[in-house]
Simulated assay, not measured.
Amino acid sequence: MATVTLKGPIFDGRSDAAVRDLKHDAVQSVAGQGSADVHANLDHSIRHPTPYYETQIAVDVDGDDAIVHDRGVIYGPWLEGVGSRNKTTRFKGYFSFRRAAQGLGEKVPRLVAHAVERAVRRLNE
C-alpha cells in the first residue's frame, strides 16, 4: 500500500487567492493605463481645454471587467467622433477613447508583468 500526500498552493487553496489577486491587479493596472491614455490623447488634441469633460472620465471596475467612460456627458459622442452631428459638421472627432484602446493592447504584457511576478512568488512559497 502506498500513501500519496498532496500539498502546496494548488492543493491547499492558496492558488485560488493568488489567481484572484492577479486578475484584480491586472484589471486595475490596465484600466488605469487606459484612463491615462484617454487623458493624454485629450490633452494632445484639445486646443482650448475646459476641465469639465476631463474630470468626467472615470473607471468602473465590476469583477473581472473594467470600463473607462465619460459618465455619459451629453457631448461625449460628438467629441469622440461617433455622434450624429459629426456627419454634418467639419469636426470629425478626437477619437480619444478609440486611440487609447488601440494602443492599450501593446502595453498589456508590460502592465500585468508585476502582478504576474507577485502571483508566481506567492505560488512558490
Rank of each mutant, 00 (worst) to 15 (best):
I10M: 11
I10S: 06
F11L: 08
D12S: 13
D12W: 01
D12V: 09
D12G: 06
G13M: 04
G13R: 02
G13H: 03
R14F: 11
R14T: 13
R14Y: 08
R14W: 05
R14D: 15
S15G: 12
S15L: 12
S15T: 10
S15D: 13
S15I: 03
D16H: 06
A17L: 10
A17F: 11
A17C: 08
A17M: 12
A17K: 13
A18Y: 03
A18F: 05
A18P: 12
A18H: 05
A18N: 04
V19F: 14
V19L: 15
R20A: 15
R20Q: 15
R20D: 14
D21Q: 14
L22C: 07
L22F: 12
L22E: 07
K23W: 02
H24T: 13
H24I: 09
H24S: 12
D25L: 09
D25K: 08
A26C: 10
A26G: 08
A26V: 01
A26R: 00
A26D: 05
V27Y: 03
V27R: 04
V27S: 09
S29K: 01
S29D: 12
S29I: 03
S29V: 03
V30S: 07
V30L: 02
A31H: 04
A31W: 02
A31K: 02
G32H: 03
G32S: 10
Q33K: 04
G34N: 04
G34D: 07
S35Y: 09
D37A: 15
D37K: 08
D37T: 02
D37Y: 04
V38P: 09
V38Y: 02
V38I: 01
H39K: 02
H39I: 10
A40D: 15
A40L: 08
A40G: 13
N41E: 15
N41K: 00
N41Q: 13
N41V: 01
D43I: 01
D43F: 07
H44L: 10
H44F: 12
H44A: 15
S45K: 07
S45E: 11
I46M: 09
R47F: 03
R47T: 12
R47V: 14
H48N: 14
H48K: 06
H48M: 07
T50Q: 11
T50A: 14
P51Q: 09
Y52N: 11
Y53D: 06
Y53L: 11
E54W: 01
E54F: 04
T55Y: 09
T55L: 08
T55A: 12
Q56N: 12
Q56S: 14
Q56M: 13
I57D: 04
I57C: 03
A58M: 08
A58R: 01
A58L: 07
A58Q: 13
A58P: 00
V59G: 06
D60P: 02
D60R: 09
D60V: 14
V61E: 00
V61S: 00
D62P: 01
D62Q: 14
G63Q: 00
G63P: 00
D64R: 06
D64A: 11
